[in-house]
Simulated assay, not measured.
Amino acid sequence: MLPGLKAGFTLDASLEADSEQLMWLGLCELRLMNDCRWPWLILVPQRPGVEEIHDLTPLDQAMLTFETNMVAQALKKATGCTKINTGALGNIVRQLHIHVIARSEGDAAWPGPVWGHGLREPYSSSEIRRFAETIKAAL
Rank of each mutant, 00 (worst) to 15 (best):
K76G: 05
M63H: 09
N85G: 00
A17S: 13
N91F: 05
P3I: 13
R103N: 03
S14F: 10
A109N: 01
R37A: 00
P58R: 09
L25S: 11
D35T: 12
L89Y: 05
I128V: 15
L96D: 03
Q73L: 14
A62Q: 13
P39F: 04
E105H: 09
L30G: 10
A88F: 00
K6P: 00
W115F: 12
I101P: 02
Q61M: 13
L89M: 08
R37W: 01
G8I: 05
G118I: 01
W40V: 11
V114W: 02
E16D: 15
L22H: 12
P111W: 02
L96K: 08
D55G: 02
S14N: 15
I42A: 11
A78G: 08
D55K: 03
E133M: 12
G49T: 01
R130M: 11
G118T: 05
V50A: 05
G90I: 08
F66Y: 14
Q21E: 15
G49A: 08
L96R: 04
V44P: 07
I98Q: 10
S126L: 13
A78N: 07
L119E: 15
R103Q: 03
W40S: 10
L119T: 14
P45H: 04
F131P: 04
V114L: 04
M1P: 13
K77R: 12
T79C: 02
K6H: 12
Q21P: 13
I98G: 00
G116Q: 08
I101K: 02
K136G: 10
G80K: 04
I135G: 09
E20K: 15
A7N: 14
Q46F: 03
I98S: 00
W40F: 14
L139H: 11
M23H: 14
S125T: 15
P39H: 06
A102L: 04
G26W: 01
N69D: 13
L89H: 02
A88M: 03
L75F: 04
L22N: 10
H99Q: 05
R47E: 01
K136P: 09
T65F: 13
K77D: 05
A88T: 01
E52S: 07
R94T: 10
W110Y: 07
L22I: 15
G4V: 12
Q61C: 11
G80W: 04
R31I: 12
P45T: 09
K136F: 11
R47N: 00
Q46H: 10
G112P: 01
E20M: 09
G116F: 06
G87M: 03
L43S: 06
